[in-house]
Design a protein around this nucleic acid. Structure first.
Length: 196
DNA sequence: CGGCTGATCGTG
DNA sequence: ACGATCAGCCGA
């Protein structure tokens, strides 16, 4: 079952925690099916979160998709080289999102093995830039519904709460106090969580 | 219009 | 520890 829009139109912390264990699917134009299990997320809490692109209600062409109703993808370029995928959360006009930070590969193993011959599957998508490269997610996915036939997140089993770790976000040291907020979530038993 | 910067990653 | 690499943000 594809996660319904209502799943995303809620408190961003809950969306971030509950996305753990769900499956991200991307079917390529040639029919290749790519899928991975979400094992790590981070919440970005909008206009009052100094680490969020929409801090201070900065509404620009880049951040515009974060203002949409929950259930669409916010994809942006970082360091001129890597795309990052977020699931927009909350109601229309509330610019919050969940960064998808790592996936465990599930479908498309042959496809990826051909391009990463030397590496182990659990390291193919253990970071937000790497997962977008592996899943072929780029600029054209920005603003796209996460319920699209060829691009969506489907319900799967969540890890038990006892396995979910909440800690500080990666790469936001510039954000002062907010750098200490425990908004990063991961499955402590997954070997595909990003390195620190 | 131009200078700066970053929700990263791979190499050393 | 550091450099790659560039869209978009900000100040002027």
């Amino acid at each position: 079952m594809i996660l319904p829009a209502e799943f995303y139109r809620r408190d961003t912390l809950r969306v971030a925690r509950e996305l753990l264990g769900q499956r991200l699917i991307h079917v390529l134009p040639d029919g290749t099916r790519l899928a991975g299990r979400i094992v790590e997320t981070e919440a970005y809490l909008g206009i009052d979160d100094p680490a969020c692109h929409t801090f201070g209600n900065r509404r620009t062409s880049r951040t515009e998709t974060m203002y949409a109703s929950g259930g669409v993808a916010y994809v942006y370029l970082i360091y001129g080289m890597y795309w990052c995928l977020n699931a927009v959360s909350q109601a229309d006009g509330v610019p919050e999102a969940v960064l998808i930070r790592a996936l465990m590969p599930e479908e498309g193993l042959d496809y990826w093995a051909a391009q990463h011959p030397a590496h182990r599957p659990e390291h193919w998508m253990n970071g937000p830039g790497k997962l977008c490269r592996a899943m072929q997610i780029q600029k054209q996915h920005n603003g796209l519904s996460l319920q699209s036939a060829y691009f969506h997140i489907e319900a799967a089993d969540s890890p038990p709460r006892s396995r979910i770790v909440a800690t500080t976000r990666v790469g936001v040291d510039y954000a002062g106090e907010a750098a200490k907020w425990p908004l990063r979530f991961y499955d402590q038993d997954s070997p595909a969580v990003s390195r620190r």
